[in-house]
Simulated scan of single mutants.
Amino acid sequence: MIHRSLAVLSLLSLPLLIEPSAASAQISCGPRDHLVKLLAEQYKEDPVGIGLTQPGQVLEVFASQAGSWSMVMTMPDGKACLIAAGDNWEMVTKIKGNPI
């Protein structure tokens, strides 16, 4: 997982302007379309989930059939940040009446 995260960060540094967050220098940010293209081309990751946060940010989870996943937060101004990435993604669905 660390190797994959480092690979994503190094790839992001080429096409995007890397802006470290105050919370963590590991977070990489740039235009959403560049980040989505990178995830699709390099890791074959597509969106599998999306949600809206209270301040109006969009949280997306991208995953591949191979099990890699990435979490992306997009700000209202269109800037997107890779906030987490890993392996062994598994889709879980709730069966009506049975909590997970």
Rank of each mutant, 00 (worst) to 15 (best):
D77K: 07
I18Y: 09
A80T: 09
S13T: 07
G49R: 12
H3M: 08
Q57P: 00
M91V: 04
P15Y: 09
D77A: 07
P99G: 05
P47Y: 01
R4Q: 14
A84N: 15
L59C: 03
W69V: 06
R4P: 01
S10R: 10
I27R: 07
S10K: 01
V72F: 01
P31T: 02
Q54D: 12
I83S: 06
S5G: 10
S28T: 13
L12D: 03
E41G: 03
K79F: 02
E60I: 00
I100V: 12
H34I: 00
G78P: 08
N98R: 14
M1I: 08
T93A: 08
I50G: 04
P55W: 15
K79C: 05
I83K: 07
G78H: 11
K37I: 00
F62M: 03
K79N: 04
Q54E: 14
H34W: 06
R4V: 09
Q57E: 15
P55M: 11
S13L: 07
Q42W: 08
D46M: 03
I27N: 01
S21I: 10
A25C: 04
G97K: 11
N98P: 00
Q65Y: 11
I2S: 09
Q57R: 06
P55H: 10
I27Q: 09
M73W: 11
L9V: 07
T53E: 12
I18L: 14
F62E: 03
E41W: 01
A63F: 02
V48I: 10
S70Q: 05
Q57I: 00
S5I: 07
A84M: 07
K79M: 07
M73I: 06
I18W: 06
D46W: 03
G97V: 02
H3C: 03
G49D: 15
V48A: 06
A63P: 02
G56D: 04
S64D: 02
S21R: 15
A66H: 07
I95L: 10
L12R: 10
E19R: 09
A7E: 10
G30K: 14
A63T: 04
V8D: 00
R4A: 10
N88E: 13
E60Y: 02
L39Y: 04
L14M: 05
A66D: 08
Q54F: 13
K96G: 00
A84Q: 15
L16E: 08
L59R: 06
N98C: 00
L52R: 14
M73E: 13
P15K: 11
D87Y: 08
D33N: 15
D33S: 13
V48T: 13
A85M: 05
E41Q: 12
L38E: 04
V92W: 08
A22V: 11
C29F: 05
N88T: 05
V8S: 02
G67L: 06
P15T: 05
G86I: 08
G78D: 12
L6Q: 08
A63D: 01
C81R: 05
L9Y: 13
C81Q: 05
I50T: 15
L17N: 14
A23G: 07
M71G: 10
N98A: 02
L17D: 11
Q65V: 14
M75T: 11
P15D: 11
I2H: 03
S5L: 02
L11F: 10
A85W: 06
S5D: 15
G97T: 12
W89K: 02
Y43H: 05
G67M: 09
V58K: 03
I50Y: 03
C81M: 04
Q65E: 11
H34D: 10
D87S: 13
L11T: 04
